[in-house]
Nucleic acid binder design. Structure first.
Length: 879
RNA sequence: GGGCCGUUAGCUCAGCUGGCUAGAGCGCUCGCCUCACACGCGAGAGGUCACAAGUUCAAGUCUUGUACGGCCCACCA
């Protein structure tokens, strides 16, 4: 391996042998490329598939979404995982650490649209010659696209694959630069063949066992993406809206004339979809109208007055109109009160052609004024119509209220009735929910309080998991339906492929027993047009990574996984969905340990995000500070804790790495430290340092065993600075041979042992600097070396008091202070002085007094017993 | 409204099962090119541990409550 080796022109000495690998001027620059290449070339992190289950540590990494670029949140949490992987590897485990790319789904579709300026139109035929003419969202004229070119689904999927491949190369490069000890030969992508096979197999098995089912039902629908979405993908956003007080007509009671019934609504445009009005069953203002019909304004449709607990007497006038469908409460009322459906909003978010059939011809004509309009302009139209008949009472009152959005969408969700596939998740089955909650107890949560998010989410579920999506780029639902004589699909009898044929695409593959030319014809068949939700595939990452069914031997050795690292924001989605699948498929929790990372906050304590424009690209930071420095920053963030993006902390990490190089250079300059590793340690100060080191090893081992990389780092770092600032200064003279040969040999041995141990303690956190130093004097990679053991260190230290190092350090500090207060140089000689301290501490200090005198350039130090620690000294005259 | 987390020096945070005279780094002040390191070294200033009550010989550390901040969920008439 090439290195800046000095010429060796110094005719000096054999002693230079040990120095021969140490650069004249150690530096962090270039370590990432050099060592990443070496690790790759020598398969340093290769998983050994012959190891038995108890010798394996397996990690189920959630594949990052390949939608453009990595952000600091990835760097943060992947570093956490990597420190654990490296620790486990050093304890002798064969670490199964695969990487995956989550490349199917909407983010990729959207990125392809923006990048190539296209959109998918499934009705178009495949264009074999299609070449995207534009890149990076710019048209041929260099300006942003005004219009997207429609292309066929196969063309669109091709472009997805092309773009994803480019992105994945960039991702891999960043992760290699960051120093992730991933076994890249285990790489998978959620759209690759193995993932599609596992995903479809998983679904078909859910179907066979009755855990998956289809249903024609109202569900939340994104009108922009034109797909159904699941509960886990929702978020609330505050939106401006307005109360409209509508005048319905109540029937006359006991011969009285009819009267007005006033109803507040924020969605007057859904009036034609009104199927009932609802009040609370104990609300006496309305209970007397039970069983009667009220009349809607404008359309004059008669709807029943119904009663339900969810109607809030305090809200508005205490009575609400039930429309199909304005919100999820409407769906509940509609279902529980067995009301008819009168849909008016179509899948595109516009008013549909056909007026509800309960309308009179006259009403239908009025409805005609809304047909084809968006929700927004439909609302304006109905307000006009209401005003024409004086059916809006008082002012329209603007409000702001939370509205459900698809987390990736920018228009409010509508509720549309459609046929969709679901997987049971306990949302409609309390017993199943309880069993899934119990699965959470089978996992050790780090930090423990994160388990409550899992439990709370299951407790709050209100429906099963909707997994079908009306999109293009993803894993297809692996089913066909036979067509009856009228060409209508028999949805109740789906045709499933045999598992051995997976993966399939029902839009091109032909079901058993049919010919290709029967597609779409009466008596023939059709493929299910939908793809699966991205979570339906990524919930199987343990199975995918472990090569489920494709490699049963591997599966046995890694599943269930030891560790699942992830952010707390995806507990409700990824973690939960994965638990559901493993519960059904393997009847087990998918992991033994769940390690939750926090978020990265910008210095103003806000979550960093692209929209806020406060995102810094990882690669720039890796280059600016060095990978070890960035890893240091990441590893400083305690498990589960949101952490500020802090360049100051990265500088500290860089400083630590550089210091490690320099301190190592000093130690290795002493002579043959490999031989010194076996030499006797005799000096009390050296033994005290080793006693401290032994305790440190225990602390770090315990911390890493508890997945607390941050604690391990903090302890090691703290010791390291004491080591360099106090210990090295104290023994420097002795190590150079300023006292006895025995004292020198003892110092060399202690330096060698301490360096060897500290490098290994730091290796999981700062793999580059430690590997660099390791290469100066040790064989092989530090990352496949053994994690330090405290026992030999305790044995060496014997009954030496670890306190001595601190006592001597304080004495030295006192001597320095005298010089600092006198504004004299640190090397100024102390001609006489005294140290006052307790008897116990003084008797300890006596054991290292020569080292203290040497480090302080002091002679004639008196030790006086007293209550207060104090140092006084007379300095040599100023020149 | 329900749940969870946090509140310790100007800033970012340690402080594990209660025993400290409350620590670190950054920043700040002063000094220093000391033969590993000026991408450095040394010294120093700086805190009634959010507030209140309680348990205890002893509380930053345990209990209860309050305030403030954050996150998740529920709340769409």
């Amino acid at each position: 391996m090439e290195r800046n080796v000095e010429s060796g022109a110094d005719p000096g000495a054999l002693a230079c042998f040990a120095m021969s690998n140490v650069p004249e001027k150690p530096s962090l620059e270039g370590l990432e490329q050099r060592w990443a290449a070496t690790w790759q070339a020598t398969n340093t992190y290769a998983f050994d598939p012959t190891k038995s289950r108890d010798e394996v540590f397996s990690i189920d990494t959630p594949p990052p979404t390949v939608s453009g670029s990595l952000h600091m949140g990835h760097i943060f949490s992947f570093t956490h995982t990597d420190t654990i992987a490296r620790y486990q590897r050093m304890t002798g485990k064969s670490v199964f650490y695969p990487m995956g790319w989550d490349d199917n789904g909407l983010p990729t579709e959207r990125r392809v649209q923006n990048y190539f300026g296209v959109r998918c139109d499934p009705s178009l035929p495949y264009d074999t010659g299609f070449e995207p003419s534009a890149r990076e969202g710019l048209g041929p004229d260099g300006k942003a696209f005004k219009q997207q070119i429609p292309i066929s689904r196969p063309n669109f999927v091709e472009l997805c694959g092309e773009l994803v491949e480019q992105d994945e190369k960039v991702f891999e490069s960043v992760f290699r630069t960051l120093g992730l000890s991933v076994d890249w030969s285990l790489l998978y992508a959620t759209i690759d063949e193995r993932s599609r096979r596992a995903s479809q197999r998983g679904f078909l098995r859910n179907l066979a066992r009755g855990e998956a089912y289809q249903q024609e039902a109202p569900s939340l629908w994104d009108v922009t993406f034109q797909t159904a979405v699941a509960q886990a993908e929702l978020e609330d956003r505050d939106q401006p809206s307005a109360y409209h007080k509508l005048r319905f007509t109540l029937p006359g009671l006991e011969g009285e004339a009819g009267s007005d019934l006033l109803i507040d609504t924020t969605r007057p445009e859904l009036l034609p979809a009104c199927v009932a009005v609802v009040a609370h069953p104990s609300d006496e203002r309305y209970t007397r109208y039970e069983g009667m019909m009220v009349t809607t304004p404008v359309f004059g449709v008669e709807v029943p007055m119904v009663f339900h607990e969810l109607a809030d007497p305090e809200k508005g006038t205490g009575v609400a109109m039930i429309c199909t469908f304005g919100d999820t409460t409407d769906v509940t009322w509609w279902r529980e009160l067995d009301l008819p459906a009168r849909a008016v909003i179509g899948r595109t978010g516009r008013f549909i052609e056909d007026a509800p059939d309960v309308m009179s011809a006259e009403a239908a004509a009025l409805y005609g004024r809304m047909v084809g309009k968006t929700i927004h302009s439909g609302k304006a139209e109905i307000v006009t119509m209401l005003q024409e008949v004086d059916a809006i009472v008082g002012e329209i009152r603007p409000i702001t209220h939370p509205v459900k959005f698809f987390e990736k969408g920018d228009k409010p969700l509508e509720i549309v009735t459609s046929r969709q596939w679901y997987i049971r998740n306990g949302g409609r089955d309390r017993e199943l929910g309880e069993r899934l909650i119990a699965r959470g107890d089978e996992m050790a949560w780090h930090p423990p309080y994160m388990q409550s998010r899992y439990t709370n989410w299951i407790d709050g579920l209100n429906g099963d998991w909707l997994i079908s999506r009306q999109r293009f780029f993803g894993v297809p639902i692996p089913l066909w339906y036979s067509l009856d004589d009228n060409g209508e699909p028999r949805y109740a009898e789906p045709i499933a492929p045999h598992e051995s044929t997976l993966p399939i695409d029902p839009s091109t593959d032909v079901p058993p027993g049919f010919d290709a030319d029967q597609r779409g014809k009466p008596g023939g068949f059709m493929g299910d047009p939908d793809i699966m939700d991205t979570w339906a595939t990524s919930s199987l990452t343990p199975q995918i990574a472990a090569k489920w069914e494709d490699d049963p031997d591997l599966f046995e050795r890694v599943y269930p996984f030891d560790m699942r690292p992830q952010g707390h924001d995806i507990i409700r989605t990824w973690l939960f969905a994965t638990a559901v699948r493993s519960h059904f498929e393997e009847d087990v929790a998918p992991w033994q340990h769940v390690c939750i990372s926090g978020w990265i906050l910008d210095p103003d304590r806000k979550k960093m995000s692209k929209s806020k424009g406060n995102v810094v690209t990882p690669i720039d930071l890796l280059e600016q500070f060095g990978s070890d420095a960035i890893r240091y920053w990441a590893a400083s963030g305690r498990p589960g804790t949101d952490t500020a993006f802090d360049e100051a902390q990265m500088k500290v990490g860089r400083r630590l790495s550089i210091k490690l190089l320099n301190a190592s250079k000093f130690a290795l300059g002493m002579g043959d430290l490999v031989a010194a590793l076996e030499a006797p340690v005799t000096e009390p100060l050296d033994l005290a340092m080793l006693a401290r080191l032994a305790s440190l090893v225990d602390e770090c081992t315990k911390a890493f065993d508890e997945f607390d990389y941050a604690r391990a780092l903090e302890r090691t770092e703290s010791f390291f600075w004491t080591f360099t600032d106090d210990y090295i200064e104290l023994v420097k003279n002795r190590a150079y041979g300023g006292r006895t040969p025995e004292g020198q040999a003892s110092a060399h041995a202690a330096l060698a042992i301490a360096l060897d141990t500290m490098l290994r303690l730091l290796a999981p956190i700062i793999p580059f600097a430690t590997e660099e130093v390791w290469s100066w004097w040790r064989e092989g990679s530090i990352h496949t070396s053994q994690w330090p053991s405290s026992a030999p260190l305790f044995s060496l230290a014997g009954d030496a008091s670890p306190e001595l190092l601190a006592i001597a350090g304080q004495a030295l500090s006192g001597l320095r202070r005298v010089k600092s207060d006198a504004k004299r140089k640190p090397r100024t000689k102390i001609v006489s002085g005294s140290i006052t301290d307790s008897g116990d501490r003084l008797s300890a200090l006596r054991l290292a007094i020569d080292d203290v005198c040497d480090a302080g350039a002091a002679s004639n130090l008196e030790l006086n017993e007293g209550n207060e620690f104090a140092v006084s000294a007379a300095l040599e005259p100023d020149e």
